[in-house]
């Protein structure tokens, strides 16, 4: 096979941060490249990964996990986070989900007052106000400006609040979103996206998956690349099934 284009996808901490099927996002990015004859290589960035490998990546994905796992990640990223910060500021696109999304913010305040420092790349904070506060769980749909209606599934204890200059990814139609109060869901900073949406998010939201791929290719090849259209019949059917569950029109 002769490929003219190639992408390197970095999957951050698949061993530790992969609790909710977020593996599906990587599969989706990879397959949607393959189907267009774009060579896609996935680098798994596990504990003790080298900064050299991280720098090779054109696109990043990091999923959610449990608290213990997040502590281990936090320890491992110590010292390497400045490179990640630099890449995000430089516009390397990425999608950061749930725990990873919280992690990019300023801090996470636990119910007992304990403060876990974040990477301070996204201007947001997360808190869990009460011990045994209700987890925000269920199917989720939210409207975005650039990627249409996004459908997914959320499951989080923390409530996230965005800083004044940080744009939300979208506005909740059904579900809770960032905090269940202000109607916002997720955040967009440069070409990076933070969201609470599992599901996983990318298979059923091909517009978003393709937008990430296009951004990564445009940036790498310093030009505007037109992605050939794919047959998204099943994607559409799966979206409609969720919409029906939520009694909304999409």
């Amino acid at each position: 096979m002769n490929y003219t284009l190639a992408l390197t996808i970095g999957w951050l901490y698949p061993e530790l941060m992969s609790t909710y099927g977020d593996h599906g996002n990587v599969i989706t990015l990879q397959k949607r490249c393959e189907w267009r004859n774009i060579k896609a290589k996935v680098i798994e960035l596990n504990t003790n990964f080298s900064v050299r490998d991280l720098k090779k990546c054109d696109l990043l994905m990091m999923g959610g996990a449990q608290d213990t796992q997040q502590e281990a990640v936090s320890k491992d990223l110590n010292g390497k986070s400045s490179i990640l910060n630099e890449m995000i500021l430089n516009g390397i696109p990425g999608i950061y989900i749930c725990g990873a999304y919280q992690f990019l913010g300023n801090y996470y305040k636990e119910a007992d007052g304990n403060l876990i420092e974040g990477l301070k790349i996204f201007d947001l904070y997360t808190e869990n106000t009460q011990v045994n506060a209700r987890r925000l769980i269920g199917n989720l749909a939210f409207r975005t400006k650039d990627f249409g209606t996004i459908v997914g599934f959320e499951n989080h204890g923390g409530r996230t609040y965005l800083g004044k200059n940080l744009k939300p990814l979208g506005f909740v139609m059904k579900g809770f979103g960032n905090n269940g109060k202000d109607g916002t869901e997720g955040a967009v900073f440069k070409n990076s996206i933070g969201t609470y949406s599992h599901g996983p998010i990318l298979p059923k939201n091909p517009l978003l998956a393709d937008a990430l791929l296009k951004k990564a290719l445009d940036k790498k090849y310093r030009t505007f690349i037109k992605l050939p259209k794919l047959d998204d019949y099943l994607e559409q059917k799966a979206r409609l099934q969720v919409a029906k569950r939520l009694s909304i029109a999409i």
Partner: peptide
């Protein structure tokens, strides 16, 4: 959720 299942299988095939 048959279409989610179908989607998962579509993404597990070698060819489209």
């Amino acid at each position: 959720r048959v279409y989610d299942l179908a989607l998962r299988l579509k993404y597990s095939l070698k060819r489209n």
